[in-house]
Design a binder for these strands. Sequence first.
RNA 1: GGCGCCAUAGCCAAGUGGUAAGGCACGGGCCUGCAAAGCCCUGAUCCCCGGUUCGAAUCCGGGUGGCGCCUCCA
Length: 470
Amino acid sequence: MQMQIFDSVRKKKLPFEPIREGEATLYVCGPTVYDDAHLGHARSALSFDLLARTLQALGYRVTYARNFTDIDDKIIKKINETGKSLRELTDYYIARYLEEMEALGVRRPDIEPKATETLDAIEAMITRLLESGCAYRTESGDIYFDTSKDPLYGSISHRVQSEEETQSRLCELKSGEKRHPKDFALWKACAGEEDVCFDAPLGSGRPGWHIECSAMIEKHFCGNDRYTIDIHGGGADLLFPHHENEAAQTRCATGHEIAKYWMHNGFVQIAGEKMSKSLGNSFFLKDALALYPGELLRFYLIGVHYRNDFNFSEEDLAAAKKRLDRLYRLKQRLLPGKAGEADAAFREALLAAMADDLNSSRALAVVDEMITVANEALDEGRADKALRRAWLGNLALVDTVLGVGGSDPYAWFQHGIAPEEKERIEALIAQRNEAKKAKDFARADAIRDELKTLGVALMDTPEGTKWEKL
RNA sequence: GGCGCCAUAGCCAAGUGGUAAGGCACGGGCCUGCAAAGCCCUGAUCCCCGGUUCGAAUCCGGGUGGCGCCUCCA
């Protein structure tokens, strides 16, 4: 099956033709670890988790890297505010990030490079840029990339600067500082006591943000003479200037393009507005995960195509919960039982949706239709062992490709119930069944109402009474 | 100011030239002691105007509305 990818530089869907047959190399811009992750970080991680899973399901050998920016102005600011060490602070947020991503079912990338562990490659790349004249040093000791040296600068974001803008801004530039408004720092000279500096042949200082990704990619991937990696991903806000700058650095330092395809995920919005740290309207994952199962958040978030904006709302989340419940009810009907091979037509439809630029929304519709067909056959008593095994196989495939539906259905419906509470609920259900047996329906209904006030819904089935936490 | 994205039933959301997937909610039905669950049935001509075409939600032009990038940002 042919994977189609929407390339955000060429702005169209293209067949994915990797640098090396049967392999796929992926690099995604990860978080700057100075604060808790929010739903936007989850969206990005989830989008590219789906990409990695899909490519794997299509038979590619995937090498996936996602970085941690662990040296940056904001991190330094926070260190100075809190009195913590750089490592203390960044290790803490990295651990939190990884925990939260795990709760969302995001698989760990193969490579998780940190800026502070890539200084050798960063310095090597800056040195090359200085030697080739693509970078220059200012009086203060900072090193800047000279965007005017790259004729292809702007080709990633399609941004062309107007002459006027360039002229007017140029006048404001102080002498001794950067030469052009679009030039950006590769290396920042040590700014004193409050700064975090590394000793380097370039002079004591620290790397700029953009150079780290280029250096990491060069360090961990080899590519061919035209591209270093197949796919570069990240949030839509990184297209400019971050990715433009990355591309320029790599182009000037190595003579080839950094990536063959670029993919950018849309934003998570709260009440129709972009959620961001600077706007102060962040919905942090730690708060979301305290309220909802990670798997539900995942299911909710992948219900919208990755390139569209996602508007978060509690109502929509509740609807997503009901939709996922349906999957787990089917699974409950099929268990205990062994999963066999997934149905060929189902597999084809699911993978076709995902291979089409990660159409997870369509993939979920395929799953819903499968659930309906299975329930229908089950209702009509024509579900033989082979069918049941295939359906469990389908659900296993959904778990592999989409990362949802892999939990135990009982655990799913009884999320957050304490053992003693569970005992009490089951005792009440036993009493109700006694009453039902004695045809004392008034008492049976009274017990059901009592359970309802505890947030427990009952379902009488041929296999006994099932219950769910609402 | 420059550049870009989006606008589909009450809500969420696929669909990128051939006469509108799926989910939630609503209503009706089957099933059930009654429910719940499950299944069946029921709903939109796709923001507005104009154009291209045998044919457009899908292409082009012009509006209106929302959002984003241009500074750190997933």
